[in-house]
Design a protein around this nucleic acid. Sequence first.
DNA 1: AACTGTGAATCTATTCACAGCT
DNA 2: AGCTGTGAATAGATTCACAGTT
Lengths: 211, 211
Amino acid sequence: MGSWREKGRFPDRVVSRFSLYLRYLKQVGQEGVYLVTSSQIAQALHLTAPQVRRDLSYLGQFGLAGVGYNVKKLASTLEKVLGLNKEWPVVLVGAGNLGAALFSYSGFRRRGFKIVAIFDKDPKKAGTRWANVAILDIDRLPETIKQKDVKIGVIAVPQYAAQEVADRLVGSGVKAILNFSPCKIEVPDDVKLQDVDVTTELETLSWFLSQ
Amino acid sequence: MGSWREKGRFPDRVVSRFSLYLRYLKQVGQEGVYLVTSSQIAQALHLTAPQVRRDLSYLGQFGLAGVGYNVKKLASTLEKVLGLNKEWPVVLVGAGNLGAALFSYSGFRRRGFKIVAIFDKDPKKAGTRWANVAILDIDRLPETIKQKDVKIGVIAVPQYAAQEVADRLVGSGVKAILNFSPCKIEVPDDVKLQDVDVTTELETLSWFLSQ
DNA sequence: AACTGTGAATCTATTCACAGCT
DNA sequence: AGCTGTGAATAGATTCACAGTT
C-alpha cells in the first residue's frame, strides 16, 4: 500500500477529480465562499460525499471537523499537487480547425498552460502567426522544444501523421502528450500519454440510445 | 448482476473499449486481415488478452477456439451493438472554432454521425452555411430537433452558455449530449451526458510531470 | 450539532489459469 | 498446438458507518 503520500502518486482517477475539485473551488472562491463541505462539493460535481472526503484525505488532514474545508487553502494545495503553481510551456502541433480551437480556448491559458509555438507542415501556414504566436515548420520542433524547455505537446493532426509527430515530440524531449487524433500512438514508458477520443465518446452515446 | 446479455447493458468501460475494438477491426479488415487473436487486439490497443476475451465474451460466443476471431463478423456485431448500423442525425450548438473543428472532422461522418444543423446565437453567423449545412439561430432548435428526430446534441459553446443550451436540447427531446464546455451541466436521469474535459486531461499531464 | 477522516465492507474491474474446442 | 471462454482469485475503487474533533 500507501507510499502515495511521500511519492505523490495517486491513482489517475483521483487526479482527474482533483482537477474538478480545483475548478469548483476557484469558482465558489470567486463568489466569496469561505468554507465548503464534502457534500456541497459532491453535489456540484455529481459525486458522493464519502468519495470527496476519501480523495481529499490523500492530501493529508485538511478539513475542519464539524465545519468543512477552507476553500482558499484547499485550492492552493490542489494547485500545488497538480503542478499548476507554475507556467507550463506547451507546443501545439497541427494548425487546422482543431488547433485553432485549442489555441483560442482561454481556459488553457488561465490554468497556466501557455502555447509557445505552433507547428504545421503546410508551407503556406508556416511563417504566419496566430495572435503573437508563430506557426513554424515542423522541422523546427526540436530547437523550440529544447530552447523553451517544453515538456508538454498537443497533437492535433490527422490520424496518419500522429505517430510521426509523437515520435518527433518524444525525440525532442517532450514527456507528456495530449493526443486528439483517433488512434493509439506508441510512446516510451516514461512519457505520459492522454488520449481525447471524440469518436469513442459519441459511440458510447449511440450505444446508449440503442438500448 | 448479469442481466446484461438480455438488456444489452454493459458497463460504460466495456462499451468504450468496444468502440476501440471496432476501430481496430475496421482498420485491419481493410488491410485484408481475416482473423485476429485476442493478443493481437490487446497489443494494438495497449490492453491485455484476457481483458479483450472477457469483453468480447459479453457478446456471446464469437471466437473460434484455437484460431481467433473473424474480423468481419466481429466488426459487424460490434457495429450493431454500438448502434452504428444506422445514421444518427446530430445537432451541433456553437459555431466557433471548436464547432468548426468538430464539423470538419471526417471521422464523425464516417462513423454514421451526420450533423444536420448548426446553431449559434450570433446573428452574423445565423443564415450562413458550412458546406451545405445551415447555421441557424438557436431559437430554431426545437423545430429542427423534432422535424429531423434528432437524439444527439453536441455542446461547443462557452461555459456560461452551456447549461442553457443543455436545457434547450433536453427540452426539445434530445436524449444524449456530448459536452465540450468545461463545466458540469445538469440533465435528467434519462439523458446520457458525456463530458470531454480538455483542462482536466492537461492537468493530469501537469501532475504527472510534477512527480 | 455538524462534519471530517478512515477502518471495514462492498461492489466493480481485471487477471489468472485451465477446461474445452478446432 | 493454439486459442477461446469462463469460473475463481485478485486487485482496485467506492461506499458505509462511526469514532473523533470543533
